[in-house]
Design a binder for these strands. Structure first.
Lengths: 156, 156
DNA sequence: TATTTTCAGTTGCAATTTGAAACTTAATTT
DNA sequence: AAATTAAGTTTCAAATTGCAACTGAAAATA
């Protein structure tokens, strides 16, 4: 609820980003939306990392306050809400890619998930643009018929 | 000392990176070394964000355990140690740049610090390579006579 | 319609982490 | 020899985390 930790520690942009995102869950939620197409509380709960319900609740409202995600009523089920990433949230794509690249390089066991990316013969900016458009249109990188991977396969 | 939190939550490379770096201090230490040329405990303490001594101590030993920094005796003062970034730590440069870019975009007040970067007419990979070499040689981005900014100025 | 199940979130509580300040020990400076 | 500086450690209160049980509303089932 009341949102704590809104004080900027310094005027450094890296520090500012970490003020908002410097914990081990926030970016995973953004990842889940963009890559796995997750949209509801229950879907976030099922991720491998096993976030606790109260932490999830806290992070979702914080991300909403910050303006990285939007919450809206689910059209088909009034118990649920729909969480979607904003443009500002999509601006984190390069951060996610670099974190992913670093992790995959330094713990190769984790690299399987995204070999597709390094395989893709595509300008990085174009790829990011494609992902943005896909997600804006309700899709995601990995899931759904209009997933980014499907689109890329179709193009080949 | 005993280093807790070494269990990987999942096989996702982003999650893995956050297992190691998902807090609000670790990346700031790497930033201080690379950008501000800080090398000693006392220098890290003076950063604007105001890290506490015990947290700093904890993070330095963790970063060393992970292999992102090296610790060695200070040649001129046996009370001090010298902390230097490793190649794996330098691999975080793209992450730092993207976090910086995101922060500067979404909180323009923090952008002053790095306008120099956006101004630089230089291939991004080349810039990163220049920074790596500079830091490997004991320099940093902003400080010292062989700083990256000095080198860039000389080139113009 | 009545009952059961599902869903999102909250609450309570123990364990861990954080943060500030005082303290320790060794080395350097005066 | 005495005072100062440096890197950490210790102590303790406050905040955060994580787990499990609970709640209330809506949906599904019988």
């Amino acid at each position: 609820m009341h949102n704590s930790k809104l004080r900027r520690r310094s005027n450094c942009p890296i520090s500012f980003s970490l003020d908002l995102l410097g914990d081990s869950w926030s970016l995973l939620i953004i990842r889940d939306i963009i890559f796995a197409g997750k949209k509801t509380f229950g879907e976030f709960l099922t991720s491998d990392e096993g976030i606790a319900r109260n932490i999830l609740s806290n992070r979702l409202s914080r991300l909403e306050t910050i303006g990285l995600i939007n919450k809206s009523p689910h059209p088909d089920d009034r118990r649920k809400d729909l969480y979607e990433v904003t443009e500002a949230g999509l601006d984190l794509l390069p951060v996610l890619f670099e974190l992913s690249g670093w992790g995959a390089k330094h713990e190769p066991e984790t690299a399987d998930t995204l070999t597709w990316l390094t395989d893709v013969q595509m300008n990085k900016d174009s790829l990011i643009q494609l992902i943005r458009q896909t997600v804006i249109n309700g899709g995601s990188v990995f899931t759904g018929s209009e997933s980014v991977i499907n689109q890329l396969e179709r193009r080949q």
